[in-house]
């Protein structure tokens, strides 16, 4: 499923909404998550999963082509951990 298919499904289920508004709704959701992570905040969506930011320490890297050492600065990367309910569903444990 890609973004446009997600929007289409939501639009089909909500005929009272303009397609344009459904697009804005979907964008607002993902934009809110990115915005939170950009500020170093977490987003916890029970049952689905949690988005957080992980710090990668500075390290000495190597240019794989030349073998030269390069200093790689500390950086922050987005991270997602699936929630228990979704993990269980993926493994056929529907639960309640």
């Amino acid at each position: 499923m890609i973004r446009s298919e997600l929007i289409q499904k939501l639009a089909d289920e909500n005929p009272h909404l303009y397609q344009r508004d459904v697009e804005r709704i979907v964008s607002a959701i993902f934009e809110e998550i990115i915005g939170a992570l950009t500020q170093g905040d977490r987003v916890e969506l029970r049952g689905f999963g949690a988005f957080s930011v992980k710090q990668r320490d500075a390290r000495i890297g190597r240019n794989p082509r030349t073998g030269e050492s390069v200093q790689v600065e500390e950086k922050h990367v987005p991270f997602f951990k699936a929630g228990k309910l979704l993990r269980d569903r993926l493994n056929g444990l529907e639960g309640n």
């Binding site: 607002a28 987003v43 916890e44």
Partner: peptide, 14 residues
């Protein structure tokens, strides 16, 4: 900052 957003914040954004 260390704040945690939830579904509520996402619905507020919508």
């Amino acid at each position: 900052a260390g704040k945690t957003l939830t579904r509520m914040d996402l619905s507020e954004a919508v």
